[in-house]
């Protein structure tokens, strides 16, 4: 079904009633699984993902992994970040089954692993593995962004030292690649319907900096539009960082209130601001 973009130019409202620079509702929780070292649950609109982190721990008796990190951990004496993404069959409308060897899923895994490995202080844990397993419960666009955000939260929960949050979101443009109109607006945080019809890209930045860790664009778009889309995406990432940071702080406060953790030096500081 083609997306009806005719209404956009009149009211400047998108199919789900958002303006061009609005994020969808982001709901996130951390420490959802008691048994895991770190865990999170994240919703970006109707995209719902769950993440469990185990480690850093001694790697299991696996041989010949895809990353070539045999002999324990990644190469060069750093921890290996092993990511597995499971897309539930019920997560999307078409209920397509995706096997383990699906190239798209493997690409997602590599991307998430490489993005987090650059932020996590993996050099502190040589010869060990940080295993991140992600489960996609529901898909409605911005899948990669949601997965990266969830993985970051879970790593924070697991207490793995990192430079900054790796936060992601998507950006698009209201015109298709064919139309050469100058009035095209950039859009923030696309849902599934928009992703199908419009050019889009996924950006992940390192915290509130303008440094881009992941940039994935899978559709045809005029090179001149890239700048606008990227700018919107980066500012979206900054918004997402605020939200995720708030989630972490709220959880911390909550845990102190309940007495599950003792107030430490760092924690006290946190409560002040």
């Amino acid at each position: 079904m083609p997306l009806d973009t005719s209404a956009y130019s009149l009211a400047l409202l998108r199919v789900d009633g958002r303006r061009w620079n609005e994020l969808r509702r982001v709901h996130a929780q951390i420490r959802t699984q008691a048994a895991a070292d770190g865990s999170s649950y994240l919703e970006m609109g109707h995209t719902k993902v769950m993440c469990v982190v185990n480690g850093p721990s001694e790697p299991g008796p696996r041989r010949g992994t895809a990353g070539g990190g045999g002999g324990g951990g990644g190469p060069g004496g750093v921890a290996e970040v092993a990511v597995s993404v499971v897309v539930a069959g019920f997560s999307s409308v078409d209920r397509k089954r995706r096997g383990r060897g699906d190239k798209r899923t493997l690409e997602l895994q590599t991307t998430i692993s490489n993005a987090l490995a650059a932020s996590l202080h993996t050099h502190l844990y040589p010869h060990s593995t940080i295993s991140i397993s992600l489960h996609v419960l529901s898909q409605d666009g911005s899948l990669l962004a949601a997965l990266i955000n969830a993985a970051t939260l879970a790593c924070v929960d697991a207490g793995i030292p990192m430079t900054d949050y790796v936060v992601a979101c998507t950006a698009g443009s209201t015109s298709t690649y064919a139309a050469n109109d100058e009035t095209a607006d950039p859009l923030l945080d696309l849902n599934h319907q928009e992703e199908q019809e419009l050019p889009s890209l996924t950006v992940a930045t390192l915290g509130e900096t303008d440094r881009v860790a992941v940039l994935v664009c899978e559709s045809r778009v005029q090179a001149s539009r890239l700048e606008g889309m990227l700018a919107v995406g980066v500012s979206g990432c900054h918004q997402v960082r605020e939200i995720l940071d708030q989630v972490v702080r709220d959880k911390g406060r909550h845990m102190i209130k309940e007495g599950t953790v003792e107030k430490g030096m760092g924690v006290e500081e946190m409560e002040v601001d």
Binding site: E107, T110, T111, I112, S113, N114, A115, L116, A117, A118, S119, Y177, L201, T205, L206, T209, D210, R211, V212, A213, V214, L215, V216, C217, E218, R220, V221, Q222, A223, S224, L226, L230, A231, V234
Partner: peptide, 17 residues
């Protein structure tokens, strides 16, 4: 001048500019 695909799949973050 049409971008067909961009793939920066992780790695050290680079300035957007």
């Amino acid at each position: 001048g049409e971008i067909c695909q961009i793939a920066k799949l992780g790695g050290t973050p680079v300035e957007a500019v």
